[in-house]
Amino acid sequence: MLPSKNTARVKPETDRHVLVALDESENAKRALLYAADFLGGSPGFRVTLLSIIADPSEDYFTSSSERDAWIKDKISRSKELLHGYREILVQSGFRVDKVDVKVEVKNCPSIADCILEIQRELGCCTIVVGRRGISKKEEFIFGSTSNKLLHSGKNCAVWVIE
């Protein structure tokens, strides 16, 4: 029996939105392959592949044109990388329209904070990242994105792929 027009409220199907944060590293690739293997072919998921380019200080460059060229090159390489990864997800069973690619140049005192900002913007329920496997000393000096995400992430799951 069909529900009455007055009382029926068909809740639209909402995909669970997963954010995979990536860079050019092997551990990021492992995270992507894990997401493809784990979620590929499952209905009800959409994925955004994210690459953040920390807006570099002018101090590292001799001129603004050199800086602009660096950013342009970085954006181009990141887009190429993410489109390659998008293909992997599609081959694993994701529909083409369920995988987005996002390259962001942002002022990032902390990369993890920038990832969380985008997670909130997009309303993602899950973040997937790779773990670099750095030493305690390296974490102390440089910081750890995965650890920061684990500590600071709110209202979302964080998958750290070894």
Binding site: F142, G143, K148
Partner: peptide, 14 residues
């Protein structure tokens, strides 16, 4: 200045 990684300020904290 230095190219920082995850966190811009950790080296100063060190």
């Amino acid at each position: 200045n230095y190219w920082h990684q995850e966190n811009m300020f950790t080296y100063d904290m060190f």
